[in-house]
């Protein structure tokens, strides 16, 4: 089992390398390089060559990649093409918003979704289950900004609570004040996470509940409580942790849309601006951060699956 986990971690490492190559090359294919973009109208062959040398753009591609990666690993994310500001500084202002919303979403959304998903699986076919299925199916299929629109209509326009944009500073705010501050973005993100998480948790528990050893437990005359707590849950934990990690990874898309929708600045707005202004240093840096988070969550998902397999935990 230990070797399996090491193997999976090695694969994760290789994946991050592959992802960095994709991101690096992806931003290299466009005509014109950083030197041209920076100098713009003032570009002359002489100062272009000089700037290229200073930025290391005259080096072979693999060496540029290596320099970029090396700097990235050491915490230097490069300098923005627009305004020459270090990307580190740009991020420093914004990462808190993204992180707070993501963490609060996980803290609120995951437990609620698990409870809803597991209870739905305990009463399959009940009207509670059917309503929940209908709602989650619709939310999964609808775009994130539809969910956001819906919440704004209900809370801001109908109930008159909150604001359609998130404004103000987060400095010095307590936990509850933060939740209030980001209530609508967190609400939207929770709905996005919950819609998938509830469905997948329900399916995972139902899958375990239909296995022969549960039927055996019923035929052994065990109580409902015991069947669920001793037989079903231990076998469902692995798949559920796997599902949680997967869904937190999916949040990457959600967080981008939500930041734009509620117009507060975070990492996602930064990368979107970077794409719009073709500031590929920013796109590379932030893109890499998002992808690394995604890959790590995927890794956790797979390791959870390995850890929860009793056949691997207790080898012959």
């Amino acid at each position: 089992m230990f070797t399996l986990i090491l193997k999976r971690m090695a694969i994760g490492f290789v994946t991050i390398c592959a992802v960095s190559i994709i991101i690096f090359l992806g931003t290299k294919v466009l005509p014109g390089d950083a030197a041209q973009i920076r100098l713009g109208q003032e570009a002359t062959p002489e100062n272009l060559a000089a700037l290229r040398e200073r930025l290391g753009l005259d080096l072979p591609m693999w060496q540029q990649y290596w320099n970029w990666l090396n700097a990235f690993v050491h915490g230097d994310l490069g300098k923005s093409l627009a305004g020459d500001a270090p990307v580190n500084e740009l991020i420093a202002d914004r990462y808190k918003n993204t992180l707070i919303v993501s963490v609060l979403t996980a803290a609120v959304g995951v437990p609620i979704s698990l409870i809803l998903g597991i209870t739905a699986a305990m009463f399959p076919g009940s009207s509670y289950d059917r309503v929940l299925t209908l709602v989650t199916v619709s939310l999964v299929a609808a775009p994130e900004f539809f969910t956001a629109t819906l919440l704004v209509l209900i809370f801001v326009f109908w109930l008159g609570i909150g604001n359609a944009v998130v404004i103000g500073s987060i400095d010095g705010k307590s936990f509850w004040e933060l939740i209030q501050h980001f209530a609508l973005p967190i609400g939207v993100m929770c709905l996005i996470v919950a819609s998938q998480l509830i469905r997948m948790t329900r399916a995972a528990v139902l899958n375990v509940m239909s296995s022969p050893y549960i039927e055996m437990a019923i035929l052994k005359g065990l109580s409902r409580q015991r069947i669920i707590l001793r037989h079903a849950v231990p076998n469902a934990v692995g798949p559920i942790v796997n599902i949680i990690a997967l869904n937190l990874a999916y949040l990457v898309t959600g967080v981008i849309v939500v930041e734009i929708f509620f117009a507060y600045s975070g990492l996602a707005t930064l990368i979107v601006q970077g794409v719009q202004t073709r500031d590929f240093v920013v796109v590379q840096a932030v893109g890499m951060l998002f992808c690394a988070a995604y890959v790590v969550l995927m890794l956790i998902a797979d390791i959870a699956a390995i850890l929860s397999n009793p056949r691997l935990r207790h080898p012959k």
Binding site: T15, A18, K28, V29, T253, F290, Y294
Partner: peptide, 15 residues
Amino acid sequence: SLPTIMLGLVVVAAV
């Protein structure tokens, strides 16, 4: 292993 939206962003940034 990349979120689809990230792939989209990178492509649009490039071309």
